[in-house]
């Protein structure tokens, strides 16, 4: 099973990075979501994969899976929702203000004007 999880994470990472390298905000948001999946699974899997041994204390249970990465991944999932929501709003605001959803600024003068 390990090979399946590893390939899935690798593929999610590839797809995520490819979409992040696109030029419009929406694919980038999708890419970030894919990367979030990959990272959360990676984090979770660092506790090693175990089938059928949930970390719920039982008298009859003989062993448990590693609970710590699960706890960390759980908050990471919720936080990644917060992050996605924030970038969605930023992207939407930028699009509505400028009628443009490109993420690259054309030239440096844009930057310098903003700095001034």
């Amino acid at each position: 099973m390990e090979i399946l999880v590893a390939t899935a994470v690798g593929l999610l990472t590839s797809a995520g990075i490819y979409l992040i390298l696109r030029q419009r905000t929406f694919p980038v948001i999708l890419g970030i979501s894919l990367i979030s999946y990959a990272v959360n699974i990676f984090l979770f899997a660092s506790g090693r994969l175990v089938v059928g041994l949930p970390p719920i204390l039982r008298d009859e249970a003989v062993a448990y899976t590693d609970p710590l990465p699960q706890a960390l991944a759980l908050t990471a999932i919720v936080i990644s929702f917060g992050m996605t929501a924030l970038i969605v709003m930023i992207a939407l605001s930028a699009y509505l203000s400028d009628n443009d959803d490109r993420i690259d600024m054309d030239d440096v003068s844009d930057l310098q004007d903003n700095d001034a």
Binding site: V5, A6, T7, V9, I17, Y18, R22, L49
Partner: peptide, 20 residues
């Protein structure tokens, strides 16, 4: 972009497989 992302994905996948 495809080369870059596939490279990164292969790296992450290998790393995870090595860990697992």
């Amino acid at each position: 972009d495809a080369v870059l992302s596939i490279g990164a994905g292969v790296g992450v996948g290998l790393l995870l497989y090595a860990i697992l």
